[in-house]
Design a protein around this nucleic acid. Structure first.
Lengths: 184, 184
DNA sequence: ATCAGCGTTCAATTTGATTTGAAGTTGCCG
DNA sequence: CGGCAACTTCAAATCAAATTGAACGCTGAT
């Protein structure tokens, strides 16, 4: 690689959305990809996944054809390590599915469009898990309310009950939400 | 730094749940406080607040009487800085309310027990915000679908529609959830 | 068997968020 | 008016999560 004419090594109009490479590709397509990646990256925090993972999902989502590792590496500015780990994660949670390759035997990925499955999964993994462990924790707490002045104990019992109530209510709401996501 | 005589200055049976000081206080009470603080700290991640903030709420929740800054400082192993900032945050979001002091004029705090208000607030701040900004973002994306091969465009349009659908559905679910939390 | 391409692994690094602590305010008290 | 106690601020330290990249398999071709 001997002195390419381009002055600044490779910082000219490269990134967009901070992760998508612009290199020398069709503006229109890159812009679309960047927008899609941006969309998912913005939601990453809410869903509790690192941005790199959201970007991976986004780039696959923006590609009409299944993406290979190489394709992704070329389009996103991420290390092989991140790509590898991210793809593993996304496969595991069912966000991406691998499409058995056509010609070559390289693995390719496309987004699983059953978005509700993803949502369900999220609800189960994060909310439900927390709710269940929380419940038993609360029960344990109930047994340790200090026996001090009567009014104190009364207040604390009431608070605890409020918490338990809230937990139960949320828990009973979960199936409703899941059902709702299923419709349509 | 020349060899201090006292081996570990003050590490004897001090912590519990990592944040609650045990010092020389009644086991029973400290255990209860620790359990409560632990409960909220565990949920901190899900609610997207730092642990110190969850601990502050927890310790107030576990106290039958409103807590002063000093009370908290004594019970939680947190710097004044964290306590000050944390209390400000909790007041701002309405999780703690200040009770006009009885005798002295020190400010005291007690948890606002309208838990559903807290939940609502959370839904509005995090979910609703994201959903709204997401919506307009998606609309913008719609206009930038590359015009490449017909089938590609078709696929991308379908995906985008799926996303929009999901967004709309979630949005329409929000009021339902809020209502549900209000009951009982 | 050796090699080259492709991915994976994992320790080290980077990055960003949280927490600390010391200096700065505020306002009451003597 | 100081002085002091109670809180606040904010730059710097700390901590954990995310990311990198170099070393390590595989697998299929030569």
């Amino acid at each position: 690689m001997l002195a390419p004419p381009a002055p600044p090594p490779t910082v000219a109009r490269r990134e967009l959305a901070g992760l998508v490479r612009m290199d020398g590709r069709a503006e229109e397509i890159a812009a679309f990809e960047a927008a899609m990646v941006g969309f998912f990256v913005e939601a990453a925090d809410l869903m509790g996944v690192p941005k790199s993972v959201a970007a991976l999902y986004g780039i696959c989502f923006a590609a009409p054809e299944p993406m290979s590792f190489a394709d992704i590496e070329q389009k996103l500015d991420l290390s092989k390590g991140s790509i590898s780990q991210g793809l593993r994660f996304l496969r595991e949670v069912g966000a991406l599915k691998e499409v058995s390759a056509a010609a070559d035997r390289v693995e390719r990925f496309e987004p699983d469009m059953e978005l509700r499955k993803l949502a369900s999964r999220w609800l189960e993994e994060r909310l439900e898990k927390q709710l269940i462990s929380g419940r038993s924790r609360l029960q344990a707490i109930g047994k340790s309310i200090p026996a001090g002045r009567k009014s104190s104990a009364r207040i604390l019992k009431a608070r605890l009950k409020a918490l338990q109530n809230w937990h139960d209510r949320t828990r009973s709401l979960l199936p409703v939400v899941k059902t709702f996501l299923k419709l349509a």
